[in-house]
Amino acid sequence: MELHLTVNGDPHTLDASPAETLLGVLRDRLGLTGTKEGCSEGECGACTVLVDGAAVDSCLLLAHAVNGAEIVTVEGLRDGDGALSSLQSAFVKAGGVQCGFCTPGFLMTLTAFLEENPAPSEDEIRTAIAGNICRCTGYSQIVESVQFVIGGTK
């Protein structure tokens, strides 16, 4: 079946079976391995991408269900000049990254969240990332990465 997706601004047309997940298409067909597969059941959040601006678990989503959608993955977060987004930059500066396997999912969840709520409280940040598991950091430095961004510095 023909599948049309715009991924990080690039249009793609593929022949995809009805059973293929969005995650499978991104990783195995388009070679965008930045989006991670942690659990395949929507628990860990490592596969989070933006579908028409909303953060979703791409492992649970059949690709054909989002036919025609605009997808943004972690590879699409840099700006047009290749500079890191303020959130990406903050994760590096504030220690939000350890092993980094959960990082793309956190970045996508938080990118969508900050669009909706540009000045969240700490509690709001913690609630926003309650669907993303990080086994390394204990979350404090991830929360501070967000606070670093909303504090206006990059």
Binding site: T33, T35, V74, E75, F91, V97
Partner: peptide, 21 residues
């Protein structure tokens, strides 16, 4: 010093290749 980790940029951009990748 709290220097930035040298693999940080590769990890926040999705460029880092893990075993499963």
């Amino acid at each position: 010093e709290p220097a930035e980790r040298t693999d940080g940029i590769a990890k926040v951009t999705g460029e880092a290749i893990y075993g499963v990748d």
